[in-house]
Amino acid sequence: MTIVAHLLMALGGLIAVLAGVGLLRFDTNYARFHAAGKASPVAFLVTALGASTQLGWGGTARLAIAAVAMVLTLPVGVHLLFRAVHRTTAGDHLAADDLASAERAARY
């Protein structure tokens, strides 16, 4: 396999380790969501990029569809989770909660 594929896949793995460590080490909810919602898709995208150099056009097409599906849907899911937690917990660990006034108006 070419060195580019090796490097990209190893880099994707390292970014996934970053997501895991972020999930373990951060103490507030929001920090964990941020680490998971941002690092893990990047890890998958870098790995898919490295893998597509090795697989034929069929494999690259499948990886492209999976990457587009993930990039379109994952941020929305993590945002829903952020909003759900923000609306149900008192933001005591937040230094300043700019969203609170808007949220209170939209309270349902």
């Binding site: 996934a16 964990r32 893990s40 998958f44 893998a51 697989l55 993930m70 899911g77």
Partner: peptide, 28 residues
């Protein structure tokens, strides 16, 4: 909420592992 995001991270790392495994075994 932590449990929900933990399952999400596990799922995405499974996706990455599937990709690398497809390259290792060479079948798509």
């Amino acid at each position: 909420a932590d449990r929900i995001i933990a399952l999400d991270v596990t799922l995405i790392s499974l996706m990455g592992a599937i990709t690398v495994d497809a390259v290792r075994r060479g079948d798509e």
